[in-house]
Design a protein around this nucleic acid. Structure first.
Lengths: 309, 309
DNA sequence: CAGAGGAGCGCTCAAATGAGCAGACTGCAA
DNA sequence: TTGCAGTCTGCTCATTTGAGCGCTCCTCTG
């Protein structure tokens, strides 16, 4: 039975042929195969993960008024979803990036996944869009930059400074550091940025871990819905809490808006409002996401006239 | 593509039908399915584990001159093999045991696996063939007895005494304990025994852990190859180190030989010589094993004239 | 702009396959 | 032994499927 199953399903030999080879009737072979499937000896699994749903992608793209959208299937826990979305973003970069571009990268677990799955890229320079955060070296923004630059063969411009500091003066001093300043100067020439999206309500942002309970409550009250490269944005798509920005080593709001191509990578339905907010804010022109988030987005009011395009 | 794959492989709908339903040509459907298989969206796995190889079983049976043999496929690590062999032994008992029999059980990780997979049995009484051993309660002989008796609805006769003690007197005293003595008296009426096989060379026996380095070396020198229910047997199939038996609370050699049906459950090629030894010793009339051990056994000289039967 | 090259599509025809059926065999009881 | 029920086997016939071919459309290049 196993032999027959192997020949039929693995070697793709016809039942007639197998029957001849083994001296059985083709009916016997057919029945053995039926039995093999019904007893679980042969299992057929359909795994859609990582596949792009072109139709859904197009709908999300229209709904949010984006330049492009990629919606992939992803099942499993948060980590599995992040990995799928990250891989899709990596593929997207590999297919669309041109040599000579300047690639700006933020940070986040989705982008870590992306950097891990990055295919060889055309020669581009890579610059870190924010200061560093988080304890784990493997997940730091610097590591993301490093890995992507490795794949592209271009230069890597990391920022060895914390993302958030306690007071504006320290931040300003950091920005004047030669290495940091060099990175900041590159921001105006960034042609493509990839960012992940932090949601503040519901709370799902790595940034939240570095902020005190009091400040968090305050910021929420001011209307922070989403965060991209530590830029805090309200539902209306406006930058809120500019004083918080002053304490960050990061790209500026208008500077970010000016980047021609801004790819957001995010998965999971809870981030829907956050994604809508950053699109409205003009901080995202393309989206890489999973089915769950895509469908949640379609439930929200459209951000562009659906008649367009 | 996923939709098509699901309909075809899961719902067993013909390509023609799918094509009609979705408004595609049947060729398009066929190509989508090809693509689905080549891209890994559809995976077909063949898992032979647990299946009986009747032909190999018959050969082993003849080769060793047994009454019966069951050879199952088993892949994976030692634990997976033990589980498969244990399940096969459990199935065998379920199919062949008659109501009113007395079932004697030894101990071992394979038998623990067997007890865990035991199907409902005809009403039989279960008796422990050896004293208890090992620290883990879940793996103790008493637990094996308990679970099997639970499945059969008959009585369980455990032996609450250590398998090996330091001197013959203690062993003798233990054997006189009323509860222990009651179990020992049942040995003569055991109709079916199930044992696992310990190998001493190569060393692979749980019993070895309870024995001092010195004693182990001594016993190996005397020619111990295998162990069944703490009966030590040489390659020639003879009981060795009878003084060791005196220190054990266990069934006797001749008593064991007298049991009409003795099923050994063991897996893994390294135990081949041990199994051959206990068959030669007349301590095993049926064998449940995996392909690896079966094939290793066939490499050894035959124990019965192959012309017989 | 013309033409080469390649990918995708659907057709024909022959081969492969499944459904249903009738005969053969086995086990069991009378 | 006979008869019965259940299972297994291989048949016929209609349907499904795959191989190979030519067509069309698209893209790239000179």
């Amino acid at each position: 039975m196993v032999l027959v199953a192997r020949r039929y399903y693995v070697d793709d030999i016809s039942k007639v042929q197998i029957a001849q080879d083994l001296g059985l009737s083709r009916f016997k072979v057919a029945r053995l195969l039926e039995q093999a499937r019904s007893t679980g000896v042969v299992t057929i699994t359909i795994d859609a993960d990582g596949l792009v749903d072109a139709e859904l992608s197009a709908r999300v793209c229209r709904h949010l008024g984006l330049d492009a959208a990629v919606v992939v299937e992803a099942s499993g826990d948060e980590n599995a979803v992040r990995r799928q979305v990250g891989e899709a973003a990596a593929r997207l970069l590999g297919e669309t990036l041109h040599a000579g571009e300047v690639l700006g990268l933020a940070w986040g677990r989705t982008l870590t996944a992306m950097s891990a799955a990055m295919p060889p890229l055309p020669r581009v320079d890579v610059v870190q869009l924010t200061g560093a955060i988080g304890g784990d070296v493997e997940e730091s923004p610097v590591e993301i930059i490093r890995r992507v630059a490795l794949r592209s063969g271009g230069s890597a411009r990391p920022i060895f400074a914390p993302l958030v500091v306690d007071d504006p003066r320290t931040a300003q001093a950091l920005r004047r550091q030669p290495d940091v300043a060099a990175a900041l100067r590159m921001f105006d020439s960034v042609t493509t940025a990839v960012v992940s999206v932090g949601s503040w309500d519901p709370p799902n942002s790595q940034l939240l871990r570095t902020i005190s309970e009091d400040e968090r409550a305050h910021l929420l009250q001011v209307g922070v819905r989403a965060e991209v490269a530590s830029l805090l944005v309200s539902d209306e798509g406006e930058l809120v809490a500019p004083d918080f920005q002053d304490r960050c080593v990061t790209i500026g709001f208008e500077q970010m808006r000016a980047i021609p191509r801004k790819i957001a990578a995010a998965g999971g339905a809870p981030k829907a409002r956050a994604v809508a907010a950053i699109v409205r804010a003009g901080l995202c022109t393309e989206l890489v996401t999973d089915r769950a988030l895509a469908e949640a987005l379609l439930q929200l009011p459209a951000l562009a006239s659906t008649t367009a395009s």
